[in-house]
Structures are given as structure tokens and as C-alpha cells.
Design a protein around this nucleic acid. Sequence first.
DNA 1: ATCTCAAGGTGGTCAGACCACGGTTTCTTT
DNA 2: AAAGAAACCGTGGTCTGACCACCTTGAGAT
Lengths: 216, 216
Amino acid sequence: MKKVNERLSITSDDSPKKVYIEIVRQLRAMIEKDGLKAGDKIPSERELSERLNAGRSSVREALRALELLGLIETRRGEGTYIRDFRGNQLVQLLGTFILQDKKAIADVIETKHFVERDCLEIALMKNGEKEFSSLKKWVAEHNVDDDRFFGKIAMLADNHLIYRIWQILKDYYHSLNTHEFQPTKEQYLELADALAQGNENLVEAAYRKLRNLSEV
Amino acid sequence: MKKVNERLSITSDDSPKKVYIEIVRQLRAMIEKDGLKAGDKIPSERELSERLNAGRSSVREALRALELLGLIETRRGEGTYIRDFRGNQLVQLLGTFILQDKKAIADVIETKHFVERDCLEIALMKNGEKEFSSLKKWVAEHNVDDDRFFGKIAMLADNHLIYRIWQILKDYYHSLNTHEFQPTKEQYLELADALAQGNENLVEAAYRKLRNLSEV
DNA sequence: ATCTCAAGGTGGTCAGACCACGGTTTCTTT
DNA sequence: AAAGAAACCGTGGTCTGACCACCTTGAGAT
């Protein structure tokens, strides 16, 4: 005789969330609380079902979703484990799945451009001639590509969040096959130089040039 | 008497994929083949279960996963629909999982500001006096708050991806208890007016004022 | 000490049963 | 005839119980 009330589905403060969504939250809380790390095992489906007072199917819906996202890994006969999620395959899945129409592609490109410009601006704001001189030197001495260069810029911007966003956008972008020409080393240098000079307009211009943008 | 063989689970040419994964693929193929677009309805769970020769629970596992990814949307009593948010929710989830270090607050605020500014700029770029006059009118006639106003701006920017990103940042922001003063209606009006005038510098200034930003 | 194999735990899947909700149809009531 | 109310049906939401396949473990046989 279980209490039929006070199940997860009823917890609604206001929003009648689906059980599996609530389970995802609980799972997240549980992971945080217990300090579970990549590779650690999480409770079995049946145990979760009991502890969270939900049906096993609902637990599975949550777990399967997290699995498709690449956040956990399940091995039959063994159990479910937290995964070292970084980057990974969901991007690819999304790419093949949804990024098919041109509007979406355009959105990705546009957003990426703006975020990159933001990173440049933030980096400019938070750094001085010294750091950018190092950057120039680094560009001159290494093989730079887009990823590496803007990776460094994002670092200089010292904003973890926007860095993550940029990475995701970058991954999206790479999953499109619309790779255009790579900027030349000279263009990177010019951009780094503009940063070193601390001139925002120069930076903007150099970035546009590097991205072959014409519009304002 | 159904044939127990040749179910989806047995189709393994080489890899013993899970049924729900196979269903995701089938679904993707189905969408592509039938040329389904955002907003279109996909077959019911029961029908899919039959057509794909799989249990309804497996179908649901696949659908729930896609839902968490933001690729589809389900409405009880109605059906399941293809969604046009690309990018999206995955970012949210990743963020929720990754952004657990508390000191990221400043990053959230900073990033939100920049993204909002981007939205303003994109909106400015893609719209004319007409649209912004409507916006002004709307602001004047309704109770505006931050969410609603920038929601509209993001819409005008016509970029679902950056809109999603903004929503996420907004949610983060709200989850911090650092709620500062709300802008006044006049400030929103001023911003809308600057947009209507098509003057980027004015827009920037109005936004800074609204956000009480001093720098730069 | 080593090997064998049965037992138990775990994920994988399915079928069936309800419920809640939205839309449609049909039947009242006015 | 028009407007409102009730029944009906399809849909997602959830739970339960039943198997299956696989892995780990440990008791017993060697």
C-alpha cells in the first residue's frame, strides 16, 4: 500500500513538470551532493525508482536522455556510470539531426561571429599591451588556426562561461561542412596587433577582414 | 503471434545498438524522407511503436531523449511536434552540469550583457523603423519587464540560437539572487526609440543607461 | 589453491493497464 | 436554429510486472 500522493509528479509548485525531467534534476542534485565524478557509478534503475518514488520507466526515460546527451554511460549487466562529458558526440548528433536547413546554419555562423567579437572586446578590456604582445609573439611563432587563436582570445577574456559558449558554437560550426577559407597568419597577426594597440575600432576592422565580413 | 525475431534490436549488422537509439535514427530518416519541418506533427507513440515494431516504452525513451535535446516538443492530449529551436537546451544542460563553480556569477552577468548587446545590434541590423515603432508602442502600452523586453528584442534579431543562449543566461541570472533594480519604463522606451532611429551609438548608450553600466 | 557454475544483480525490452488532457462530435437546452 | 453541455476518442504520462541477456560474485567441487 503505497501512498499514491506525493509522488514526483505532484511536487508541482506551479509547473506540472514531467517526472522524467524531475528525475534529471534529482540526479543532478544527487551527483552534486555526493560529489560524484566521472567514472563513478550511480544507483541502479530499480533503486532510483524506489528512492525517487517513481516508476522504473520514468527513471529510464531520464537516463536514456542523459545517455544520448553523453552525460552518462550504461553497460548492460554492470550499471550506469557518470561520463567524462566534454565536447563529445552529441554535437555531432545535433549536427546531423537538425542543422540541416539553411536558417539554422546562418544562425550558428552569425552567433559565432558575434560571440567572437564579444570575446575580443572583453579580452581587450581586461588585458594590456603586455599580454597582447605575448599573443603576437605566439602567433608569429606557431601554426595558428581558428580554434587555437580564438581559444587563446577566449582565455584572455577570462570568462569561463562565454568560453564554453564559444566552444559549443565552434563545435556546431565544425559540424557543418561549410568550412570556408582559413584566415592567413598575417590576418591573425594584424588582429593581435590591433589588440596590442588597444584600439577597439582597429580590432573590429581586423576581425571583419579576417572573417571576410563586409557589412557594418 | 508476432514473430519475435527481426525486431529492431536484432537488426545488428555489427553493432548491438539499443532499440531506442535505432528509433532515433529511424525517426531522423523518417523526418528527412517525408520532408517534415518545424511545427509538423510526427506519428503518435503508439503508431510509431507499431510501425517500427518496437515497444512503446522504447519509443518513449527515444522521444524523451530527443525532447530533452530540444528537438521535439510534446503536448499531452495533442501529440508530438518537431521543434524549431536548434542549438538550445543542450547548452542549458551542459551549462547546468558544468557551471557549478560559484564564482561564475560575474561571468554570467558579463556574458548576459554582451549577448543582450549583440541581440540589440542584430535586431537593429535586421529591422527598420516600422518594427521598432511597433516595439515602442508595445512598450508604452504594456507592463514591460526585462524578460519580456529582451525576449521581444531577441525575436526581432531573428536568431533562434542566440535567443536560446539569452534565455539560458537569463535563467542563470535569475537563479542568482543578485537582482538589482528593474529598469524603468522610460528607459525601455528610450532604448526602443534609439532603435527606431537606427542609431547604433544611441542604442548602445541607452542600453548602458538601462543597465547602469559605466565602463567604456 | 584453482576451477566451475549457479545465483543474484543490472540493464534492455515489452505488454498492458490506468490516468489526464485536448479536441471533436453529439445531444441537449434555450 | 443557435448556443451550451456532455460523451467520446485519440494522445501523451506513468506505473507495474514480466521476461531476457549479460556481468559479477561466491560457494562448492576438484
